[in-house]
Design a protein around this nucleic acid. Structure first.
Lengths: 178, 178
DNA sequence: CACGTCATGTAAACAGTTACATGATTCG
DNA sequence: CGAATCATGTAACTGTTTACATGACGTG
């Protein structure tokens, strides 16, 4: 059965925050949420149609300017209930993680392999950059300290992403030669 | 082009450590390496055939006991070169990560949502258990402290997995009510 | 009016999971 | 001799990426 379509629940969650278009949804995967799930518009548009057929969402055509047609999607009560059920149900399997770089390390046999230090340095740069980007996000998104009160989940996942990158960078540093 | 078949390189790396069967390879994804990549036997067997056609690996039929046929696969020089190239080439894109649980958190709006604490507790248990398992692995695999010298990569990824779980657990604990 | 972004879609290929299927070996 | 494990494979489906395709809007 493949793995059970988690993307649909994420879309339900996003639409519950506010009605929006497929284009908007695709954009959402470029920020914090992209740290924990990814999807392209080519996967989103067909799924939206299937979800509408299933009765979980509906759309309203709106026209911007002269004739640019947008489809504003929103939840139906059924869709809302599906979202609530998903969030409430346990998540007893740890979602499998993948990391191509860490795997490459597995095939390095000795500490003095000349490829090791350049590899570590490259990843250090990448994760450092990612960390800075996430810290900037936190500064701008939660500039107003009261924001966290009604966007607690948003705060949590951004915090988790920052912690993850912080420790990744620290781990790399530990094995980097000065 | 889909995403470029990283599994084949992992298989090359595993076969470089020692010639082995498809069954053995599938097993490898149950331990440390499973922390950073996953594959079922149904994906591995067909891929081994394709890799053999491509000239990267060869196999030898061996018979155990009365008539149990095994296929022992090993690298060809071409395959070995492919492995070296893969490990040496930069890994400039961070492999996308997925985490269903963290995503669910995103849809929790306030800190007093009654679903939050049970969710955190459940994940705490899961990651705590995973952490203990990994720590046991380290104790047994690296009981002999000289093992690390010729299995440095193995040590690195196990260490990384342990660090990752340690900080995940700490992060959860931070938001758990006493 | 050109360029970047907004907006929606489809097609083809590739990756990965689940289920089906079969048989041998080992150990209690 | 039954159950767990070793061992190999295929089929069907689901998930995901890449590429192709089209057109409108806003700004300089």
């Amino acid at each position: 059965m493949g793995q059970r379509n988690r993307l649909q629940y994420i879309i339900l969650g996003l639409l519950n925050q506010q009605p929006q278009t497929g284009y908007d949804l695709a954009k959402a995967f470029e920020n914090e949420i992209g740290e924990f799930w990814q999807a392209q518009h080519s996967q989103i548009y067909p799924l939206l149609k299937r979800m509408e057929s299933a009765g979980d969402i509906t759309h309203e055509d709106t026209v911007t300017g002269e004739k640019l047609a947008k489809k504003q999607y929103k939840l139906t009560p059924t869709g809302y209930q599906k979202l609530v059920d998903w969030v409430s149900e346990p998540s007893p399997e740890l979602t499998p993680n993948k990391d191509e770089f860490i795997l490459k390390l597995y095939f390095i046999k000795t500490a003095d392999d000349p490829r090791l230090q350049p590899m570590l340095r490259e990843q250090y740069q990448l994760h450092q950059a990612q960390l800075h980007h996430l810290q900037q996000r936190r500064k701008t998104v939660f500039a107003d300290s009261t924001t966290v009160d009604h966007a607690y989940g948003h705060y949590l996942i951004l915090d988790h992403a920052i912690e993850r990158e912080t420790h990744y960078v620290e781990w790399l540093a530990q094995y980097l030669n000065p």
